[in-house]
Amino acid sequence: MNAKADGFRTDRARVTGLGSAKTGVGHWWSQRITSIALVPLTILFVFPFAQSLGGDFASVRATYANPFHAIVAILFIGTTFLHVQQGLQVVIEDYVHDKALRTGALLANTLLCWAFGLSGVFAVAKIAFTA
């Protein structure tokens, strides 16, 4: 690339974002944030969920009608699917080398995670408001 075709941009400006890390540590850091949030949320979510699985309809709904359990479930589901999106993105970037396939997989990953995450939040909210 010569200076004529690229105007007055510096060498640094031309290569920024072209490395494998693209935008730097933003993705890495936000994955740590969801990880740390999931430490207390997992402990709070798993036990009432494990006790509810296989329970009868009325008592399951009574559990998640409790604001504490409902809020924990909503935060856990939302944070989990953010974390899943971040994790699967790295896995796709590592193993899917075909550019079209990779772009499609990354797109599907993001859309599915938002769809499942928000559906889960809706489901818990509906139980909490109608039980």
């Binding site: 309809f57 589901i77 989990t80 899943v84 499942f116 489901a123």
Partner: peptide
């Protein structure tokens, strides 16, 4: 990730 989807399915069923 698959298990989380099953979990959402279960909550949707309870709703």
């Amino acid at each position: 990730a698959f298990g989380a989807m099953l979990g959402v399915w279960w909550f949707l069923a309870a709703a």
